[in-house]
Design a protein around this nucleic acid. Structure first.
Length: 648
RNA sequence: GGACCCGUGGUGUAGCGGCCCAACAUGCCAGCCUGUCACGCUGGAGAUCGCCGGUUCGAAUCCGGUCGGGUCCGCCA
């Protein structure tokens, strides 16, 4: 039986040596409490002979009758506790009733294990705690999944419903610790670099642009709403006007959009902004910060290239078919047009394969990637790839196989002729045994489809070294893209992104009237001082040097079709602030969840979040969202309309 | 908004028209066991196969719907 007086009051720690845990140089300093003198990962052979008290969860119990072993677990490790009936019949009796996940505290003497029974797989494997006292602090129901088996697959629903048990598992503990170290390292670098950490509010004003806002009804002002920030974008720019000079924040952000492996409705950004900077200043700082943080958090990982590779948007799209290229492997896109164009005397495309010729004649492209070792891929594999290409938006996918003998085969060889087929394969850089995949379409479709195929094949074929961290920059994005539906120019990223100084003259329309935009306007060629940081094929973050001059800001907004009233309503505070002396400034925001996931070898940011939501935005543990109390709605002056009755 | 995959004792899986009132492993419960570390041995309990409807002589199995989870497209300045 459990003695209730012992359960509810801490056991006496008097007489036990707590010096190890009060040693300020020890990573477990200060963790000694009345319930424990050491953590379950602390004891070593040098502690043999000392008394100790441990507390934790019963990881596993091995009952040999008169002798019981308990592996006791806490966040810090696992220690074997031995309870020998001849040492203490009382302790043995209690231990025999202990079950998995019971919370216990045990006291006794640290002893070297008997020769031959050491466990080299445990850091504490040379010793064991010979317990003379066992106290059950709390019993536990049988858990709904295996907390003590790192390899057991667990249904995602169960993990999320019982997240507090999921997090007890070692893998989750390690990931949360890694994330904690990541944030700590980020803070240290910023503080050492003269940044001020400023918190900005979460109840702000909705801006009807970009992602869908989460809104919060106001009780004090019925009929009006706050919005949760999609990012602290405007606030940090106002901090620059306020003279804060160098700001950063680990900021929670909210976007009411559909979820993905790398997207949750609430997520965390490293948000920063700097005054009196140009593009290079910000990129150089962020790059140095990212390197220092990576080395501090995951010193064992290889950084692919320092300084980071920098691609213009145009270059990234041409070479990788993506604005977030995974540069851990090559398989770059190759333009086949020069070989095809040379096939006729007048330079007109005449490859003999109509799809290629028509694409080129229509101003499109014929490009290829070479897949190493897939030259002998069966028909079914080619069909899969063709299927994927169509899903990505291509009309088809041509291929050439280079056989071991060097001869080039494939259904299109009969149109191209062997000579041209061989020259195309050679231009694509194909070696015997390789497969050349060719897309002919508009420039945008060709690059996009090949880029997606490249990314998918890179994963499938294991071309990317998982231990490598490949950071890269992509910059000089187009300022605007043509919005066909609304017949206007849209900011490709942030509407406050600045234009490259040499492209300032392009911020106009053909007619000169900013209110009359057309798809052929010079504005379409203007490039932004916008930069994205990419890590292993994921967009880690993006930022820009802002438009800090009032006149340019108004011009840019006018091009995007904003009326003066709309501008005033959406960005009134900023526009006014910019009339009071805004310094040149720029910044960036990095996804902390994505960064932590990539550093932890994960493909889903749920794995580095304590309490994430499902793909349908539910919190299975708290059962959120849920129906509001009618009184709450009444207080806010709200009622649901057009919501189908939910039953069951 | 759309496509695809999954849902069977506590957990992970098998079974995919009758041989199944459902099998295996593990977990759980009881007993035995003094050197285990995924301890071992013996015995036992535990599922109307997510839910609703249909087809059929007969449904875990086929069909439709629905709910939940996942992956992806759209969406994500």
């Amino acid at each position: 039986m459990i003695d209730p007086s012992r359960v509810n009051s801490p056991p006496d720690s008097g007489g036990y040596d707590t010096r190890a845990m009060s040693d300020p140089t020890s990573p477990v300093a200060g963790l000694a409490t009345p319930y424990r003198t050491h953590t379950c990962g602390a004891l070593r052979a040098s502690d043999a002979g000392s008394p100790a008290r441990l507390a934790g969860w019963v990881h596993r119990r091995r009952d040999h009758g008169q002798l019981i072993f308990i592996d006791l677990r806490d966040r810090h490790g696992l220690t074997q506790v031995v309870i020998d009936a001849t040492d203490s019949p009382e302790a043995h009796e209690i231990a025999s009733r202990a079950r998995s996940e019971f919370v216990v505290t045990v006291a006794g003497e640290v002893a070297r294990r008997l020769p031959g029974t050491e466990n080299p797989r445990l850091p504490t494997g040379e010793i064991e705690l010979r317990a003379t006292e066992v106290t059950v602090l709390n019993e536990a129901k049988t858990p709904p999944f295996y907390i003590n088996d790192p390899d057991a697959p667990i249904d995602e629903t169960l993990r999320l419903k019982y997240r507090y048990l999921d997090i007890r598992r070692e893998a989750m503990q390690r990931r949360l610790e890694l994330r904690s170290r990541l944030v700590q390292a980020i803070r240290e670098v910023h503080h050492a670099s003269g940044f001020v950490e400023v918190e900005t509010p979460n109840l702000i004003k909705s801006t009807p642009e970009g992602a869908r806002d989460f809104i919060v009804p106001s009780r004090l002002q019925p009929g009006e709403v706050y919005a949760l920030p999609q990012s602290p974008q405007q606030l940090k720019q106002l901090l620059m006007v306020a003279g804060v000079d160098r700001y950063f924040q680990i900021a929670r952000c909210f976007r009411d959009e559909d979820l993905r492996g790398d997207r949750q409705p609430e997520f965390t950004q490293l948000d920063l902004e700097m005054s009196f900077v140009d593009e290079a200043t910000v990129m150089d700082f962020v790059e140095r910060m990212a390197i220092e943080v990576s080395r501090a958090v995951v010193p064992e990982r290889t950084l692919l290239a320092t300084p980071f590779q920098r691609f213009t948007y145009h270059e990234a799209m041409e070479r990788f078919g993506s604005d977030k290229p995974d540069v851990r492997f090559a398989m770059e896109l190759v333009d086949l047009a020069p070989e095809i164009r040379g096939t006729a005397a007048d330079g007109a495309p005449a490859s003999g394969f109509r799809v290629f010729d028509e694409a080129l004649a229509g101003g499109g492209r014929v490009k290829a990637i070479t897949v190493p070792g897939l030259g002998d891929a069966p028909r079914s594999r080619i069909d899969e790839l063709t299927e994927a290409a169509k899903r990505f938006g291509a009309r088809g996918l041509a291929h050439l196989s280079v056989e071991a003998s060097g001869s080039v085969k494939g259904p299109i060889v009969k149109f191209l002729g062997e000579d041209l087929a061989e020259r195309l394969a050679a231009r694509a850089g194909a070696k015997p045994g390789d497969l050349v995949l060719i897309v002919a379409d508009s420039s945008a479709v060709t690059n996009d489809v090949l880029g997606r195929l490249r990314a998918e094949l890179g994963t499938q074929l294991g071309l990317a070294d998982p231990d490598v961290l490949a950071y890269a920059w992509v910059h000089r994005f187009p300022m605007y893209q043509w919005d066909v539906e609304n017949g206007r120019w849209d900011a490709t990223h942030n509407p406050f992104s600045g234009v490259l100084p040499e492209d300032e003259v392009l911020l106009t329309t053909t007619s000169g009237d900013l209110a009359q935009p057309t798809p052929d306007d010079p504005a379409g060629r203007a490039r932004a001082m916008q930069y994205d940081i990419v890590l292993n094929g994921w967009e880690l973050g993006g930022g820009s040097v802002r438009i800090w001059r009032h006149d340019l800001l108004e011009r840019s907004f006018a091009l995007q079709g904003y009326s003066r009233e709309r501008m005033q309503n959406m960005f009134g505070a900023m526009l006014e602030a910019f009339e009071y002396g805004a310094p040149p400034h720029g910044g960036i925001a990095l996804g902390i969840d994505r960064w932590a996931a990539l550093l932890a070898y994960q493909v889903n940011i749920r794995e580095v979040m304590a309490f994430p939501k499902t793909q349908s935005g539910s919190d299975l543990m708290l059962d959120a969202p849920s129906e509001p109390d009618p009184a709450q709605l009444a207080e806010l002056g709200l009622q649901f309309v057009g919501v189908p009755n939910r039953t069951g």
